[in-house]
Design a protein around this nucleic acid. Structure first.
Length: 327
DNA sequence: TAGATTTGACCGAA
DNA sequence: TTCGGTCAAATCTA
C-alpha cells in the first residue's frame, strides 16, 4: 500500500535526520568541552555555526519531505476523539488540508512581570490576515502569515487560539517552515524534534540544547522564567514522558529561557512562559485593558534578534515554551 | 503614504 | 449545510 512506500521514505528520512542530529551532537560536545578551556571565541563560534548548520539541514529535510503530518500515526492507541482538554498535550494527528506542510502546536502560558510587545515574538515577522470566532471557543482565533509571503513566497503561517479554560494560555499552531530570508537569520520555526531516537541519544540531544542555553542565556537579562515541556510525535509514550521529565529538570538549571508576548484574542496581557506545574505559583496576572476587542500587543522586552535565533532560536524561541507538539 | 490590522465575504472540506 | 481558513477592501497608524 501507499503507506509502505511512505514508511520506507520516512525511515530513510529518519536515518538522514539521525545522522545530522548526531553530527550536531558531536559538535555540541566539542563546544561543551571547550567551554572550560581557553579556546578562542572564534573556535566556539565556529562550532556553534556547525551545530546550526546541522540543525538547519535537518529542518530543511523535514521541510521538503512533507512527512511531518504523518509523523507517528500510531502513537496513540485508541486515542480519544478530539478533546478540549488543552492542558494535556498528547501528541496527536491534526488533519491538515495542507498535507505537505509540517504543522505543530505549542502552548504558551503567560505570567505577569514581563512586558512584551510583539505578537508572539518568535523572531519572525508575522502579519495578521484574519480573525475568526471558532465554534465552542470563547475567544477568536487569529490567523497570521509571514510578512515576506508576497516578496519571498514564504508560506509559513500560524494560528493563535486562546484557551477557553485558561485565558492566559495560548495555543499556537504553526504551519509550514519559513523559506524567507528570516529562516537563515532566525532559524526554522520548527522546534526541537527528535525522531524516534533511542533514549540515550535523545537525552544527549536534549543536553545539547540545554548546553547551548547555558552558553548563551547569560547574555540576557530577562526577568521571565520559562519552563517547558516538549511533546514529540513519538510512538512511545515512554519517550514522551522521559522528554518531559528531562526537560523540566534541565529547565531548573537554566533558570531563564526566554519570554515572549502575545497580543491577541481578548485581553492585554504580559507574559512569560511557565509550565503548567508552575503556573499556580506564578500568578498569571492579566493586565486587562479596558478593551477586550482591541487585542493590543502586550509583548515587549523580547528581542527577536537575540542569539537564540538560529539553533538556539529554533529551540528556544519556539520550543522552550509551555508545550509543543508536532502534528 | 506605506505597511499593518480589521472585518465581512467567499470558498472548500467534511 | 456548517465551519474553518483565506481573501481583500476599508481602516488605522507611524
Amino acid at each position: 500500500m501507499e503507506r509502505n512506500s511512505n514508511g520506507r521514505e520516512w525511515e530513510k528520512m529518519k536515518k538522514e535526520l539521525n545522522e545530522l542530529m548526531t553530527e550536531g551532537r558531536d559538535y555540541a560536545h566539542q563546544l561543551k568541552s571547550q567551554l572550560g578551556s581557553t579556546s578562542s571565541q572564534e573556535s566556539r563560534e565556529h562550532l556553534a555555526k556547525k551545530i546550526l548548520e546541522s540543525y538547519h539541514k535537518s529542518l530543511t529535510i523535514m521541510n521538503y519531505s512533507g512527512e511531518l503530518d504523518q509523523v507517528s500515526p500510531h502513537s496513540h492507541g485508541g486515542g480519544s476523539p478530539k478533546s478540549d482538554d488543552s492542558d494535556h498535550q498528547e501528541p496527536h494527528i491534526i488533519q491538515s488540508s495542507k498535507k505537505s506542510m509540517p504543522r505543530w502546536t505549542q502552548k504558551v502560558r503567560i505570567a505577569p512581570g514581563v512586558v512584551i510587545d510583539r505578537a508572539l515574538d518568535d523572531g519572525f515577522s508575522w502579519r495578521k490576515y484574519g480573525q475568526k470566532d471558532i465554534l465552542g471557543a470563547k475567544f477568536p482565533r487569529g490567523y497570521h502569515r509571514c510578512t515576506y509571503r508576497k516578496s519571498q513566497g514564504c508560506e509559513a503561517t500560524k494560528q493563535v487560539q486562546r484557551s477557553n479554560e485558561d485565558p492566559v494560555l495560548f495555543e499556537i499552531i504553526y504551519r509550514g517552515i519559513h523559506s524567507c530570508s528570516q529562516a537563515s537569520a532566525v532559524g526554522s520555526t520548527i522546534p526541537v524534534q527528535v525522531l524516534e531516537p533511542n533514549q540515550a541519544q535523545e537525552q544527549e540531544n536534549l543536553e545539547i540544547m540545554t548546553t547551548s542555553l547555558d552558553t548563551s542565556h547569560h547574555n540576557y537579562n530577562h526577568q521571565a522564567h520559562l519552563h517547558q515541556s516538549l511533546h514529540y510525535p513519538l510512538p512511545s509514550t515512554q519517550n514522551l514522558e522521559s522528554n518531559n521529565v528531562l526537560l523540566q529538570q534541565k529547565d531548573h538549571n537554566i533558570g531563564f529561557l526566554g519570554s515572549t508576548s502575545y497580543s491577541d484574542l481578548g485581553t492585554n496581557v504580559n507574559y512569560h512562559f511557565l509550565a503548567p506545574h508552575d503556573a499556580g505559583s506564578a500568578s498569571h496576572s492579566t493586565i486587562n485593558s479596558p478593551t477586550t476587542a482591541g487585542l493590543e500587543s502586550p509583548f515587549e522586552s523580547f528581542s527577536p534578534n537575540h542569539p537564540f535565533g538560529g539553533f538556539g532560536g529554533s529551540i528556544l524561541n519556539s520550543s522552550l515554551r509551555d508545550g509543543i507538539k508536532f502534528t
